[in-house]
Amino acid sequence: MGNRARAVIVSNRRITGLTSEVIAELVVEIGPLWHERHQVKLASRSRKRAVGGGPKHRLVFVDRMLATLVHLRHGVTHDVLACWFGVDRSTITRAVGEVRPLLAERGCTVSSDVRLRTLAEVVEHLGSSGMTGIIDGTEIRVRRPAAGRKDRDRFISGKNKQNAVKSMVVTGGVGSVLRCSPSRPASCADITHARQLGLATLLAAAPALEILADAGYQGLGAQTGGRVVTPPHRKFKKNAPDWYEEMYEHRRKAHSSRRIRVEHGIARLKNWRTLARHLGRREHMSDTVQAIAGLLSHQQTADLHSTRQM
């Protein structure tokens, strides 16, 4: 790829969703990790020539990183990227498969020196900072499993009636992304997914903190000592008094206005086209979701830091 085309990708935020400063930080951070793993992979098998011999990469690491970012941001197919970067499609596929897990392992950036990689670290951060957390599940449409697969129906969403996977998103009170869980088949209920991730156990042992959630998580409040706050229960299903209807609507809207930030966070995640409609393998969804969450949180932190300096 020519230097001019590479400069256009780096300088135009609309192409990758990231500023040139953030891309430079990613190259410095992930480049050595990619090189180390690549060398280990080369040395792990029997060879007829020394490691480092033979033709050099036509697709250098910077271009591999840029190809992965463009793919995640716009859902561009590997064939198109191969034509753009002047290599074979298999080279792009291999590059994305190598860089995407490295991005997923980075975790979500809270500040320049704080990065959250596990749900336990997120709960600890919320407890120590006194910040209110917000959780919600989001579904990502995927390709239908092949006919005859025994667990084919597990991917059918009971809500949207389509094949999808589900991830639990945790944001701060202002909508900053703190964590995206590994994906699960969409037939799994939100509260079941949270329990399988160990959220109830972590919150029960954590210091006093507040987690806002929607009605899909009703029941976690009792298991966590009131740390999970859900919308109020409706006590009158029929012939409710007017005063109760007014009070119920007021409390419901107040709770909804507090947790709307997580919807904004999910909307920013879905701006990355790979999460709007995933056309690749379902096995890669966990790495894809966590990689995008890490990139988005890194950019949000960088934007917040630059705003404070102005």
Rank of each mutant, 00 (worst) to 15 (best):
N3W: 01
V10F: 00
S11Y: 04
T16F: 06
S20I: 03
I23A: 08
H35L: 07
H35C: 00
G52R: 12
R58I: 11
R64N: 01
L69H: 00
H71T: 08
T77Y: 04
H78M: 13
W84S: 07
F85T: 00
I92V: 13
T93L: 09
A95H: 11
V96H: 14
E98I: 00
P101H: 05
A104L: 06
R106Q: 15
V114E: 11
L126A: 14
S128M: 15
S129E: 12
S129P: 13
G130Q: 12
M131K: 12
G133S: 07
G133L: 06
I134C: 12
R141L: 06
A147I: 12
G148Q: 14
G148K: 14
D153P: 09
I156G: 01
G158P: 10
V165S: 06
K166G: 00
T171I: 08
T171H: 02
G172Q: 08
G172H: 09
V174D: 15
G175R: 02
A186I: 13
A189L: 09
A189W: 03
G198K: 06
A200L: 02
L202T: 11
L202R: 09
L202S: 05
A205P: 00
A206C: 08
L212Q: 09
D214G: 13
G216H: 13
Q218N: 06
T224F: 03
R227W: 08
H233A: 06
W243G: 01
E246T: 14
E249D: 12
H250S: 10
H250R: 14
K253I: 14
A254S: 13
R259I: 09
R261N: 08
G265N: 06
A267F: 02
N271S: 10
W272E: 00
W272P: 00
A276W: 05
H278G: 08
G280L: 03
I292T: 08
A293F: 13
G294V: 01
A302I: 03
L304I: 07
R308V: 03
M310G: 10
